[in-house]
Computed example of a mutant assay.
Amino acid sequence: MRVSLPMYPLDDRASHTYWCWLRDRLVSAGLGQEHELPLQLAAPGDYFSHWQQPDLLLSQTCGYPLVTLLQGQVQLVGVFHYHVAGCEHGDYHSDIVVRHDDSRQTLAQFRGTRVACNEPHSQSGYHALRTTIAPLSDGTPFFSQLRFSGSHHASARQVAAGEADIAALDCVSAALLRQRDPATFSRLRLLQRTAPTPGLPLITSQRTAPAQLAALQGLLADSMQEPTLAAALATMGILGFSRRQLADYQCIRQQAERHAGIVLAA
Rank of each mutant, 00 (worst) to 15 (best):
M1S: 08
V3I: 03
M7C: 12
P9T: 00
D12W: 02
R13D: 05
R13V: 15
T17S: 14
C20T: 15
W21L: 09
L22P: 04
D24Q: 14
S28T: 15
S28G: 09
A29F: 09
E34W: 14
L39A: 13
Q40L: 15
A42V: 11
A42L: 13
A43P: 06
Y47E: 13
F48E: 13
F48H: 15
S49T: 15
P54E: 14
D55S: 14
D55A: 12
L56S: 09
L58S: 08
L58D: 04
S59V: 13
Y64R: 06
L66D: 07
T68E: 08
L70H: 07
Q73D: 09
V74C: 04
G78Q: 00
F80T: 01
H81M: 09
H81G: 06
V84M: 04
C87N: 05
H93V: 09
H100K: 12
D101T: 15
D102I: 09
S103R: 11
R104H: 00
Q105I: 03
Q105R: 15
A108F: 05
F110R: 05
Q123P: 07
Q123D: 07
A128P: 05
T132R: 13
I133E: 05
S137V: 08
S137C: 12
F142N: 01
F148A: 11
G150P: 08
H153I: 00
S155Y: 07
S155T: 11
R157D: 09
A160E: 02
A160G: 08
E163H: 12
I166D: 04
I166P: 05
A168V: 04
L169K: 10
C171K: 03
V172E: 00
L177S: 06
Q179K: 01
D181E: 14
T184A: 02
S186G: 12
R187F: 07
P201A: 04
L202Q: 11
I203R: 00
S205N: 02
R207C: 10
A215S: 12
Q217S: 04
G218N: 06
D222I: 10
P227Y: 08
T228Y: 04
L229K: 07
L239Q: 09
S242F: 08
A247D: 09
A247V: 07
D248G: 00
Q250H: 15
Q250E: 12
A256L: 02
H259W: 13
G261D: 15
L264K: 10
A266H: 07
